[in-house]
Design a protein around this nucleic acid. Structure first.
Lengths: 311, 311
DNA sequence: AATGTTTACGGAGGCCGTAAGCATG
DNA sequence: CATGCTTACGGCCTCCGTAAACATT
């Protein structure tokens, strides 16, 4: 059994059971992969892949278990390399963060700036996606951790760390009636206008829905956007009033918009970091997390990754 | 990076940093191991072992982390083989149980008998040791699971499954006064005689100590044995009265001994099964566990191994 | 016919074992 | 001087890439 063979297996599975594509991705020849996979299958005494004649068409039941284990082995092998780098080149390396637009645009910049200054030799990468996608990136080992408000706790491979809580505000064009009410803002006040807010999968959109459902008021949502900038743009054009994350309102930039707090109308949302439990984090990765959420020290993060309940 | 290199690393560490001995254990040459370890160290960019001149004298800090990960990888590689066997040769294989004398002698035989009949092609091995030793065997992957009353929960790598509760009885030579008291047995009655019981590390000895401590009575323990047969032997010789596990009294064999229940004097002890959380268990291993403790179905065992808290 | 997998074969690289060299206690 | 690790070297194995045959859609 060789690590290469496991890599081949996993890559073939990842490429939708297409050996040729796997060969390309791995910069090697297709017959080589075929052969090594057969050798491994012989050694294990089982077929990992079910073939229809010469074509690979499915993963067998034992094959799925083999793939799971192989994935774990390969991830651990990656971790070995990281241990090496961690000690040989403390200040160098890569850090990949998967996150959503809102976090990347409004929450992360401060931490990123401090991080770049502290670790000039680390190449920081930010991958954007929707909450499901970014969690999958972390699960697949394509990112070191995820920062998101949704979905993290749906992945059992990930441990979720609370970073901060936030809530929503309403924005509208300057002079809009909703900005000069003679009473505290209510859901009914908002629902009196067309609403522009986040797409269903993003930024605590669930909490917005729930608030309206509970109140029995039917909101008229005319545009759902993935990011706040789009919302602000259309609110500025007069399409309706916007419900956005409070932190996403920038008084000095958003000069044509007015702003009303709506924290009392919606349940707060919690932004979390999601990390694979079996990942090996570089020292600077812990440091970034602490820059982003100071209460998440290395000790807290480690405890959460290693079981969390015992010890 | 190759699996062999990891095997070499781990074996050298296991053999007390002696490369030559590791070579012998692995049936290979010593220079080969030296070379491969150096190659791996070069690849990782760190020294796993600290050398004093040409002698290996210690494990470096990153080296320890490398060894931990390497161990995990090798265990997963073993698991891969087991998946193969599980599906290719369902009824064959090996099952190694680590346990103490008391369990092996009085608790396991029924399950073993049923198991041998059901799986004649599986070679069953029982390794005996003290509770610490048997837990270490499981941690090292030398046994599939441990059956013991003590220590299992002290190993964070293991998950502990309750099997059954039991308590103690007092044995004495036929005609001994303690066998014909006119009142229910008390600790004072026992402490009036020299006592023969288990060694401190075994069979819930803690619970015996605690009972006497709480009552403020000082017992006169004249012999501490590792196994019940030794205790019974010396009680038969008139050395004193014995405190043993109730299940270890065999009326048809122990004809020269009398027996008094003492369940009301001591806290019950719980016998548990200890399994590495990241182990891969063969189907027949689950079956054995269920034969031994019917409430421990495959589902229960799996849930306990995979985290226990979530899902 | 095109896509995709297996079989066949040759070359290069790497792993292992033997033997000799060299530190350390 | 004995133990133990390293360096040196040669053989063999195996892994990989090319080319061609074969199967499937």
């Amino acid at each position: 059994m060789k690590l290469q063979q496991l890599r081949y297996l996993v890559e073939v599975a990842k490429q939708g059971l297409n050996v040729s594509e796997a060969a390309e991705k791995l910069h090697t020849s297709q017959p080589g992969i075929s052969k090594q996979i057969r050798l491994l299958e012989d050694e294990l005494g089982i077929q990992v892949f079910i073939r229809n004649g010469k074509r690979v068409v499915a993963v067998s039941e034992p094959g799925q278990q083999v793939l799971d284990i192989a994935g774990r082995i390969l991830r651990e092998a990656q971790n070995l390399k990281r241990v090496g780098d961690e000690f040989a080149r403390e200040e160098e390396g890569e850090l990949t963060i998967a996150t959503t637009h809102t976090q990347a645009r409004y929450a992360l910049p401060t931490a990123v700036q401090a991080f770049l200054k502290r670790y000039p030799k680390v190449s920081l990468r930010i991958k954007q996606g929707n909450p499901i996608q970014i969690c999958e990136m972390v699960v697949a080992g394509e990112a070191d951790f995820a920062v998101a408000t949704e979905s993290i706790d749906q992945f059992s491979e990930l441990t979720a760390l609370d970073c901060y809580q936030w809530n929503r505000s309403v924005v509208a064009p300057l002079g809009h009636p909703i900005l000069s009410l003679d009473h505290p803002l209510t859901l009914a006040d908002i629902a009196a206008w067309p609403i522009v807010t986040y797409d269903y999968a993003f930024a605590g959109r669930n909490n917005i829905n729930r608030a309206f459902e509970l109140s029995g008021i039917e909101p008229n949502i005319v545009l759902t956007a993935i990011d706040t900038d789009v919302i602000k743009t259309y609110v500025g054009l007069g399409l309706g009033v916007g419900i956005i994350a409070t932190m996403a309102f920038e008084p000095e930039r958003d000069t044509q918009l007015g702003f009303v707090h709506a924290e009392h109308l919606f349940l707060p949302s919690t932004t979390r970091i999601g990390i694979r439990r079996d990942a090996y984090l570089r020292g600077f990765a812990y440091h970034f997390i602490e820059l982003f959420a100071p209460h998440l020290t290395r000790q807290v993060v480690d405890r959460s990754m290693r079981g969390g309940d015992d010890e």
